[in-house]
Structures are given as structure tokens and as C-alpha cells.
Design a protein around this nucleic acid. Structure first.
Length: 485
RNA sequence: GGUUCCGUCGUCUAGUGGUCUAGGACGUCUGGUUCUCAUCCAGAAAAUCGCGGGUUCGACUCCCGCCGGAAUCACCA
């Protein structure tokens, strides 16, 4: 069965990690079944509308590789895809309900409603508007709120994630269908749109679960079949038991992109938070996700967001791309990874060539957790580091060596390296010779040379660092270090 | 308060009556890979399966009760 799914955000800000899954899962199901994915913008709340939010949504989906078949930008047979432009459609459906005696214009003022509510609170009974239904209602016309006239009864339904559900009549109420401003509420609009657009699966957060009976009542009154319901459990904040939201500092998805997280890792992590295919696989490509995704394996309890694991996964993806999933870097892999690194290099790399940066990347990639680590970890490849003799003399492997000896060791290194052919293997041989000649341990000799070259807390293997830096630069820095000691 | 949902290592999870003295992953710790950091490899610690009853020869798995957590009760979505 070809699934028609949708992601229907309201344009009130950025998409954060707590709510992208309701875009990922619909996408996966649509692609798996050869169906389609619709992007619909639910902008009926004018007060919460945020300028530019739609573009933010599009940007996020595009980055993650979640392309939509119908919606803004691409259009489609069910256009328009902004609810504010579909006003007439909702009114048309609303009139059907009125004609069937299942909706009425509500003349009650908000103040009066508040009184009813206060009355119920005082008497400790649940507030149900249907108990205060006005007896004489005017004929509805736009500009008046329109309410659903419910018929309280029990409802049973099936949720693809939560299983068989059942509720009593006490949860049914006369909910607002169309607001005073003429725009529909979410409760009404999504039902109409999903029906018009042929949506087969509604995937949304569990917070809508308690509204289900009211939706079921509307589907019934409208005489239409409802789509399948898929309630997605919440993603929990790192601490506490609350769902992850902007107030808990949930970062936007694109903020992770700007911090150097790969789209593949983000998608992989999020898809597997609350879903797994029952195997022990951890790393999934988009294609594998599309192939293996299944609704019945979505977890029905909330999952805590764990950034540490996301970062681990990002490291895995960086290595996977650089090595084309093998053990060593390949040219193609480095090119692929390099293409993602724009904007993450230190300022000093501004004038460096692509080839040089690729070479640096190829020896440093397995140390990266995020692309932005490049900024902190590669500076000395592009500009001579500030000399800090203290860093050498206080190093744990060097602090017991006299300054005179340090100088002598560096001088010997300079002599040997001056006469060496400059490539990885030759450099390694020279380094080994140096070890033999001086009788020093690698910890002492290599640490010294490494620090004199980089003055950085860590760096790639010495021979690789030397090779990339080049002969001239390496010897210059070594000499400068001798003079500074 | 009403209604509904959820409950396995710190975290994400596997587990659908016996193969579970509960498996994997992240994190943590230890050791190895000629320096550092990281990768990689090996290993360790870590869950009385929320609690109490029952059904059964046998329960993490089925039933009941309880406890704990969450969601929702808007002219917001």
C-alpha cells in the first residue's frame, strides 16, 4: 500500500530535535511504500506566526535529505499548502456539518465561558462546554466562532504505535471548529486537509492522543474514513522527565549543522531514538532506513535525548565517509568529506589550497567528533604557532631532560631530517634512526619534536605531521624552537 | 481532579512463557596499538526486568492491584 504522509508544522520558529521525528518517520514510510510525502504549513494561528519560519522548516528538511513531493516550493495537485490560503475549503466543509446539524454558531462570549469554567472548578466537576450549550444559536456566518455539536459516546480505535485504544463519553466536547477570525482550528483544519489530500497515515506526537475521540467524532459526522493514526512518543530532555522543548534549550536541527554535525549522523541518531529494527546495527544510511523502517517497531515510551551518542555517531559517520566505509582513507572519501568542511577551517587556512587542506583532513579526520573541531585542531598546519618553551619543558616526558640536552636532540633531528627524502615512509625511517642514535624512547624524542612543530596538545602521527607540513616549514620551526629554549 | 499513555543496566535498546545465571550500543573504567590526542582492538563494572499478588511444572514475558512518571483537559498547534 502506497502511503501518503505529511509533515505539517506550524511556522512558529525553528524545528528542534524534539520534533523532527514527525518529519523523518513520515518520509521513511512514504519512500518505503513508493507513496508520497506532503509538506503542509499550518499557519492558522496568526498570533504565533513567525516571519521566515517556513523557510527554516524547508531548510531543515532539505538539509536532512527529507524532500517532499507536494507542498511549498514544489507545488502539487492539492495546492495551496498554506492553511491560511485554504479558508474557503474549510468553510465549505463546515457548512456540511451545519447542514447535518452537527455544528452551530456560538454566541457565547469568552467572558461567559470563563464564568462557566470557574463554576465547574468551584464545584470540582470537569468543565465540558457541551453542558452549557446555548439553546438558541444564530445562523452561522464567517466572523462567528463555530462549534462542533458532539454526541457523547464511547470510542475505540487502533493506534499503530500505542495499540488498541478506548475512551468513555466524558472526553467528548463541543470543540471550536472555526475561530472568530474565520480561520479553522488545528482540530478541524487537519482533518479536512488530510481528507482532501488523501493522507493515509497521520504521524504526530502523543500529545494529540487525548484529542483523538473528538477527531473520531468529526470524521464520523463528516461521513469520512479516517487515516491510520501513529502516535510518536516524546523525546525527553537530558535531565528531568519532561519532553524536550525549546524551553529546555532544545537546539534547532540546523544549529547542529552549523556546529559541524553531518546530516547523515543527525538523521541516523534521530531515526534510531525510539525505533530499531531488532538487529544490533547502529549505523544506518538513509537507504537502509527507508528499507528497514516499520511502524510496529516504534517504541511506545519516551526516549531521552543523549547528545554524547549523537556525537559518537557523528564521528562514526566522518570516518565512514572518509574511508568509504573501509579501513583507510581514499581519495574519493576525502573529497567527499572535504566538500562538507567549508566554513569549518581556522581563519589562518583562508589562503591554503584545497589540496593542502585535503591532505590535512586526511591525517586528522579520525580525530574529529564534529567538523568544527577542525578549527581548534589544525591551526598549526596553516600558520607558525606561537612559541611556548614552557610547554616543552613542563611536558611530562620532557621535564626531567635538561635544556641543553633538549637543544642537542632537536639539533640532531634537524641534521637528520635535512638529509631525508620527504615522504611518509622515509620520514618514519629517519625517525627510527634518530631513536637508535640517541638511545631515547619515542615518548621523549617524539614528544619533543611534535611540540616543537606544533605547540599543540595533540597532533597526528609525527611522520604524517612532518610530511604534511613540508620540509622547509618543519625545519624552520625546529630551528626556531632550538633558539627559544 | 477527570481522562489516557508509559515503566528492562546511568542512557538508547534486544527480549512476545523455558535457549535470560537478561544480549547489543553510548558513556565509565582497565589493558594493547613505537609520542600526544583520537581511532581501532581486547576486557571489566553496570538491570533483584517499578512493587505486590495471582495463573503456570516454569514469567521480564499472561492477569489483577498498587506505586512512580508523563501527556491532555484553549477561539495553540
Amino acid at each position: 500500500m502506497k502511503a501518503v504522509t505529511r509533515f505539517a508544522p506550524s511556522p512558529t520558529g525553528y524545528i528542534h530535535i524534539g520534533n523532527v521525528r514527525s518529519a523523518i518517520y513520515p518520509y521513511l514510510l512514504a519512500r518505503q511504500t513508493g507513496g508520497k510525502m506532503i509538506l503542509r504549513i499550518e499557519d492558522t494561528d496568526q498570533a504565533r506566526f513567525v516571519e521566515g519560519a517556513t523557510e527554516l522548516v524547508e531548510d531543515t528538511l532539505t538539509w536532512l535529505g527529507l524532500n517532499w513531493d507536494e507542498g511549498p516550493v514544489v507545488g502539487g495537485p492539492n495546492a495551496p499548502y498554506f492553511q491560511t490560503e485554504r479558508r474557503d475549503i474549510y468553510h465549505e466543509w463546515a457548512r456540511k456539518l451545519i447542514a447535518a446539524g452537527r455544528a452551530y454558531a456560538d454566541p457565547t462570549t469568552p467572558e461567559q465561558i470563563e464564568k462557566y469554567r470557574a463554576e465547574c472548578t468551584a464545584n470540582k466537576v470537569p468543565f465540558l462546554y457541551r453542558n452549557f450549550r446555548p439553546e438558541n444559536t444564530p445562523e452561522w456566518e464567517p466572523g462567528m466562532p463555530l462549534r462542533f455539536k458532539t454526541e457523547p459516546k464511547e470510542y475505540s480505535w487502533h493506534d499503530e504505535v500505542m495499540g488498541d485504544m478506548h475512551t468513555g463519553p466524558e472526553v467528548l466536547d463541543d470543540i471550536i471548529l472555526i475561530k472568530k477570525d474565520g480561520l479553522p482550528t488545528y482540530n478541524f483544519a487537519h482533518i479536512v486537509d488530510d481528507a482532501e489530500m488523501g493522507v493515509t497515515h497521520i504521524m504526530r506526537g502523543v500529545e494529540y492522543l487525548s484529542s483523538m475521540p473528538n477527531y473520531l467524532a468529526i470524521y464520523e459526522a463528516l461521513g469520512i474514513d479516517h487515516p491510520k493514526f501513529v502516535s510518536l512518543p516524546h523525546i525527553l530532555a537530558p535531565t528531568g522527565n519532561k519532553k524536550l522543548g525549546k524551553r529546555d534549550g532544545a537546539k534547532s536541527v540546523t544549529e547542529y549543522r552549523d556546529d559541524g554535525v553531518l546530516a547523515e549522523a543527525m538523521l541516523n541518531y534521530l531515526a534510531c531514538l525510539g525505533w530499531n529494527d531488532g538487529t544490533e546495527q547502529e549505523i544506518y544510511t538513509m537507504d537502509e532506513l527507508v528499507e528497514k523502517f516499520s511502524l510496529d517497531r516504534i517504541q511506545n515510551s519516551g526516549a531521552r535525548y543523549d547528545e554524547t551518542k549523537l556525537l559518537w555517531m557523528n564521528g562514526q559517520w566522518i570516518r565512514r565517509i572518509a574511508t568509504e566505509n573501509g579501513e583507510t582513507v581514499t581519495e574519493k572519501g576525502i573529497n567527499e568529506l572535504y566538500a562538507r568542511t567549508a566554513g569549518f577551517w581556522p581563519e589562518s587556512a583562508a589562503n591554503a589550497s584545497d589540496d593542502y587542506k585535503k591532505q590535512v583532513l586526511s591525517i586528522i579526520y579520525d580525530r574529529l567528533k564534529t567538523l568544527s573541531d577542525l578549527r581548534e585542531m589544525t591551526g598549526y598546519f596553516f600558520a607558525d604557532p606561537a612559541i611556548n618553551a614552557e610547554m616543552i619543558t613542563s611536558n611530562k616526558f620532557l621535564k626531567n631532560t635538561s635544556v641543553g640536552e633538549l637543544r642537542s636532540l632537536l639539533s640532531q633531528a634537524i641534521d637528520k631530517l635535512s638529509a631525508t627524502e620527504w615522504n611518509e615512509d622515509a620520514l618514519q625511517n629517519t625517525l627510527n634512526d634518530l631513536l637508535a642514535v640517541t638511545g631515547k624512547k619515542p615518548a621523549e624524542l617524539f614528544s619533543l619534536i611534535r611540540l616543537a612543530l606544533s605547540f599543540a596538545p595533540f597532533s597526528p602521527a609525527l611522520n604524517l605531521t612532518l610530511n604534511t607540513l613540508g620540509k622547509e616549514t618543519s625545519l624552520r620551526r625546529l630551528s626556531a624552537a632550538v633558539n627559544a629554549l
